[in-house]
């Protein structure tokens, strides 16, 4: 079972429907987490949402509790939430991407996707990862074709994955395939 931790976003149910293609999905608000569902889940998903990782200490606690024990996936804010807990700095961008379709490319650090592949994705983020960023076993695997901003990471040792863009958006081509791959990795 996949447990989606919702940060009161208006895209969370798109995420749920996308993950439902592959497994049973449960979802609760981040402030009303059900312990038994949390323990039962094989995969945890941190949803997109407003604000910054600092605003969600409860989600950070869950992340640190289950890191290495369950597969963990972060989308948009969830992506930032994970990196924030790995010592990353999350900062405001000069140019803001809301409802923006842009091209990303896969780099050589990716184990799941082929190096050099490019595709179109939907973005909804005010903030981004400040770089350089270093954390054990974490690799930035996709970047924005124009700004080079971090768009995806993989930690294949602890099975932790994240996307700064929205795989569930209608603006993302092959979003389902991305999710399928990280769920079977």
């Amino acid at each position: 079972m996949i447990y989606v931790i919702d940060h009161k976003d208006s895209f969370t149910h798109n995420v749920i429907h996308q993950f439902s293609l592959f497994d049973k999905v449960e979802c609760d608000d981040f402030s009303q987490i059900n312990k038994s569902k949390l323990n039962k889940a094989t995969t945890l998903v941190f949803s997109p949402g407003p604000g910054s990782p600092r605003d969600y200490p409860l989600s950070s606690k869950i992340y640190n509790q289950f890191k290495g024990k369950k597969r963990i996936i972060g989308i948009c804010l969830g992506f930032q939430q994970i990196l924030f807990n790995e010592g990353g700095k999350i900062i405001e961008q000069n140019k803001i991407y809301h409802g923006f379709q842009s091209q990303v490319f896969v780099n050589e650090s990716s184990k799941l996707f082929s190096d050099g592949r490019k595709f179109k994705v939907g973005r909804y983020h005010s903030l981004k990862l400040d770089e350089p960023f270093n954390s054990k076993n974490f690799y930035i695997t996709m970047r924005c074709d124009i700004t080079n901003a971090a768009m995806s990471f993989e930690n294949n040792v602890d099975k932790i994955y994240g996307f700064q863009f929205h795989p569930e958006s209608f603006l993302t081509k092959n979003g389902n395939l991305l999710i399928k791959k990280i769920l079977s990795a």
Binding site: G51, E92, I96, H98, G99, S126, L127
Partner: peptide
């Protein structure tokens, strides 16, 4: 919007 509390 800059701080991410709303997108629109």
């Amino acid at each position: 919007i800059r701080s991410g509390q709303t997108y629109q």
